[in-house]
Amino acid sequence: MTSPLIRQLIEEKGYPLLNEDNFNSFIKDQEFTVLFCTEQAHRFPESNDVAVILPELVKRFPELTPAIVAPEYEKKVQGRYNFTVWPSLVFLKEGRYLGAISKVQDWDIYLAEIPSILALEPRRDPGIGIPVVVNPVQSACGQ
């Protein structure tokens, strides 16, 4: 279950809760999105800290549209954006991946990293997997 601080972001601040049904349409409609992936706050108490920090980051960077990823959809988002540590903030531009910041960071790190992330060119979703490389040179074994 979601912690009271995370529920407050949804219920009082109006941050959308994204799931399989609304995820793709939401992220494509925003210029810059910051996704808050919390996992289970009782297992990862830093999620509560980030729940307090995120509204302050949105005040500092008003171009960001925040959203909470629904607990039942977080593993798919984790696979799509290939972060390994909880909690994570994933930054997107028009639905395309820019970067992520995981765990709680010092305020100065957020202030330095977020502008750098937002200045990046969007790239393909990192996803989990091994890139396929085609070898144009064919050779037979033992030759």
Score class of each variant (00 low, 15 high):
residue 1 M to G: 06
residue 1 M to D: 11
residue 6 I to R: 01
residue 6 I to E: 11
residue 7 R to I: 11
residue 7 R to V: 10
residue 8 Q to S: 11
residue 8 Q to A: 11
residue 8 Q to C: 03
residue 8 Q to K: 15
residue 10 I to D: 00
residue 10 I to T: 03
residue 11 E to M: 02
residue 14 G to H: 04
residue 15 Y to G: 02
residue 16 P to R: 07
residue 18 L to Q: 07
residue 18 L to A: 09
residue 22 N to I: 00
residue 23 F to C: 01
residue 25 S to P: 00
residue 28 K to Y: 04
residue 29 D to F: 02
residue 29 D to M: 04
residue 29 D to H: 09
residue 30 Q to P: 05
residue 31 E to M: 05
residue 31 E to T: 05
residue 33 T to F: 09
residue 34 V to F: 10
residue 34 V to I: 14
residue 36 F to D: 08
residue 36 F to R: 03
residue 38 T to M: 00
residue 39 E to K: 02
residue 41 A to K: 00
residue 41 A to V: 03
residue 42 H to G: 00
residue 43 R to G: 06
residue 43 R to C: 09
residue 46 E to H: 00
residue 46 E to V: 00
residue 47 S to A: 13
residue 50 V to E: 08
residue 50 V to N: 06
residue 54 L to F: 08
residue 55 P to Y: 07
residue 56 E to P: 01
residue 57 L to P: 13
residue 58 V to S: 12
residue 58 V to W: 11
residue 58 V to P: 12
residue 59 K to I: 15
residue 60 R to N: 13
residue 63 E to H: 03
residue 66 P to I: 07
residue 67 A to S: 14
residue 68 I to C: 07
residue 69 V to T: 10
residue 71 P to H: 07
residue 71 P to T: 04
residue 72 E to L: 05
residue 75 K to T: 13
residue 82 N to V: 08
residue 82 N to I: 07
residue 84 T to N: 07
residue 84 T to Q: 09
residue 84 T to P: 00
residue 86 W to M: 11
residue 87 P to W: 10
residue 87 P to Y: 07
residue 88 S to H: 12
residue 88 S to F: 10
residue 88 S to G: 15
residue 89 L to N: 14
residue 91 F to H: 03
residue 91 F to V: 06
residue 91 F to S: 04
residue 92 L to F: 12
residue 92 L to Q: 12
residue 93 K to Q: 13
residue 96 R to C: 10
residue 97 Y to D: 11
residue 97 Y to Q: 06
residue 98 L to K: 02
residue 99 G to Y: 08
residue 100 A to T: 14
residue 101 I to N: 02
residue 103 K to D: 08
residue 103 K to G: 10
residue 103 K to S: 08
residue 104 V to W: 06
residue 105 Q to L: 15
residue 105 Q to H: 10
residue 109 I to T: 09
residue 109 I to S: 09
residue 111 L to V: 08
residue 115 P to I: 12
residue 115 P to G: 06
residue 115 P to R: 11
residue 116 S to P: 00
residue 116 S to Y: 08
residue 118 L to Y: 09
residue 119 A to L: 12
residue 120 L to K: 14
residue 120 L to N: 13
residue 120 L to G: 04
residue 120 L to S: 09
residue 122 P to G: 07
residue 122 P to Q: 05
residue 125 D to W: 07
residue 128 I to Q: 14
residue 130 I to C: 04
residue 131 P to C: 14
residue 131 P to Q: 15
residue 132 V to C: 10
residue 133 V to K: 03
residue 136 P to I: 12
residue 137 V to T: 15
residue 137 V to E: 15
residue 137 V to Y: 10
residue 141 C to E: 13
residue 142 G to A: 09
residue 142 G to I: 11
residue 142 G to S: 08
residue 142 G to R: 06
